[in-house]
Design a binder for these strands. Structure first.
Lengths: 344, 344
DNA sequence: CTGAAAGCGCTAACAG
DNA sequence: CTGTTAGCGCTTTCAG
């Protein structure tokens, strides 16, 4: 089918070893020979076969990233950061989507292990732990992304979500809000648990403040719109004056549900709204949404760094756990009466 | 390093050929033997090496998809459709992002060719034609996505964007609008050209109607917000009563720019707004955006189908060119005085 | 500096 | 049914 080193060698009148040298160590070959070989390569349209190279090398030059939701801009930004750093380091990044399904995640991890990728970055589903630890045990470098872990032998890059939840709640409380509602789910997702826990701790510290939960099936825009209907009812019942959404997709959906229809709920007048992730759609919402920013691209890049450092480590050695601090970005959705950058 | 068939064979007390048979044609092996081999595989934690298998097979079981902007939900939806179909057919989908850069696109295509992927789906940058044709000439099955082509030897899946542009413009005209503005760019992107051309033809057919252009650097939310400022000026100058955006990201940005600030421009009262792609954010915008729907997932799935059919074709044979018809989804952003589903 | 030859792990004949 | 063996295309000693 396709042309191989042998044919290139024949055409250039050299041996296959020399062709290989031209490809991988051109400085060890006489210039005239290099040129002859390169002409042959061009004329024949030769393209090296990575499978063969990899078989020889024992390992590929590819890093895989498995995310929970390819449609969430948060993850695509993490992917961008990771890809950038991977390419800088001479690797290629493969992107895969688990859609929060353990089966799909598992299928992808199997595939990557068969491919002998250089390593795997994974934003794990809530029940991925065993499979991921197994991967690690098989000698595949792994870094958990957007998720801390109890397993010290797994490296991880995460944001302190408890702190993020606290920041968001404290901000709402400082604005005089006392009846918070946390919107998010599924409940077994650690990110959701942590953000909720942080919010609870902040609320617990303030006399007269309370927090309710409106669970959702997932962290999507549609789920946010459904939750918004419930929030509306709570607001109108006088039981909610602030919403803390587990991510921005949800927050955008909630905003949409609150503002639409014949009887819009005022944001922030009647209810303040805070999201999480600070994706660009949050700032671009009609009432710009206050959000907890995570350093998405940096997280991706850092994950790649940790992964490449894994190479030399013994499987049982303790790993690095990088935890970033979140940052609150205040916008109009949560400030009363006017946003800080537009004093009346 | 990792365990191979040979060790599995030794452990199970059989030959490597038998192990291979168990893996690939278990019905040709005695059940008792199968069981013994499988136990050995489990005990040893054996994972087949794809590189070796692929080297032998001459081709991989992977399909690659290169998109222009991984942050655009339109493309991630196409990817979902493609992945679904790929998996059904026993393939794996690799996702790569060119970010509209010819260099990055080219690097990805090189990489995929070296990997001997089963085929490549590509949403090409405007100047990708030569590289893509070369890929094809090297015998790699290729399908152009979201883009028709003059080259009959390249298969393609696209939507009739001229028709889509026309539909959008005709709708605006039917609502009594006469001063249209087309927002979009870069100008060399065929999708943008076609949509614009369709709009022009519709406008040309109506006495007293006109259309202006507000160019953008790319098709992102941020570009839309910048363009929105210009649109606002045109509206206030009495030179614009309708906007047709080249995609929804742009439309959302325009809406945001028009609605925000101390002096919001009424949508649809003062200016009607139509987007393109019908991504979920369009329907969820505060003024739900009328949009031209493309069958995103079906496009992805169809692209995979065409690709798999490529296998048997001679390089020079004519290819299939699937063209889908777009569909206008009318929402509140373009209908006056009230949306059709909410009669006063 | 260049050539010859050994294998990386696997599958697919072909014998037994 | 199972064992043996020849490569797939490439890199890498090791001699020349």
């Amino acid at each position: 089918m396709s042309v191989s080193v042998r044919e290139v060698a024949a055409r250039a009148g050299v041996s296959v070893g020399t062709v290989s040298n031209v490809l991988n160590r051109r400085d060890a070959v006489r210039p005239a020979t290099v040129e002859r070989v390169e002409r042959a390569i061009d004329e024949l349209g030769y393209v090296p076969n990575d499978a063969a190279r990899q078989l020889r090398a024992g390992q590929s030059t590819t890093i895989a990233l498995v995310v929970l939701d390819i449609g969430n801009p948060f993850f695509t930004d993490v992917a961008r950061g990771a890809e950038e750093r991977a390419v800088e380091s001479g690797y290629t990044l493969l992107l895969a989507n688990s859609d929060d399904s353990v089966e799909r995640e598992s299928a992808h991890l199997d595939q990557f292990e068969r491919q002998r990728v250089a390593g795997v970055l994974v934003v794990p589903t809530s029940s991925a732990q065993p499979r991921v630890s197994q991967l690690r045990a098989h000698g595949v470098p792994v870094v958990l992304v957007d998720r801390g872990t109890a397993d010290a032998t797994l490296a991880s890059v995460a944001v302190d979500d408890v702190e993020g939840g606290r920041l968001a709640a404290e901000h709402l409380l400082s604005q005089g809000r006392r009846q918070l509602v946390f919107v998010g789910g599924p409940e077994d997702l650690p990110q959701v648990q942590d953000r909720s826990a942080g919010a609870h701790s902040a609320v617990g510290a303030v006399e007269g403040a309370g927090i309710l939960h409106v669970p959702t099936a997932a962290l999507t825009l549609d789920d946010g719109m459904s939750a918004g209907a419930e929030v509306r009812a709570l607001v109108r019942a006088g039981r909610c004056d602030a919403v803390l959404a587990a991510n921005d997709l949800l927050a955008i959906g909630v905003q949409q549900a609150l503002l639409s229809g014949p009887d819009p709920v005022g944001i922030p007048r009647e209810v303040a709204l805070v999201g999480y992730d600070d994706i660009s759609f949050a700032a671009a919402a009609v009432v710009p949404i206050t959000s907890v920013r995570q350093p998405r691209r940096v997280m991706g890049a850092t994950a790649v760094d940790l992964l490449l450092r894994e190479a030399g480590l013994a499987p049982a050695a303790a790993r690095e756990h990088v935890v970033f601090q979140p940052e609150l970005v205040v916008r109009a959705s949560s400030t009363v009466p006017a946003p800080p950058d537009a004093p009346a």
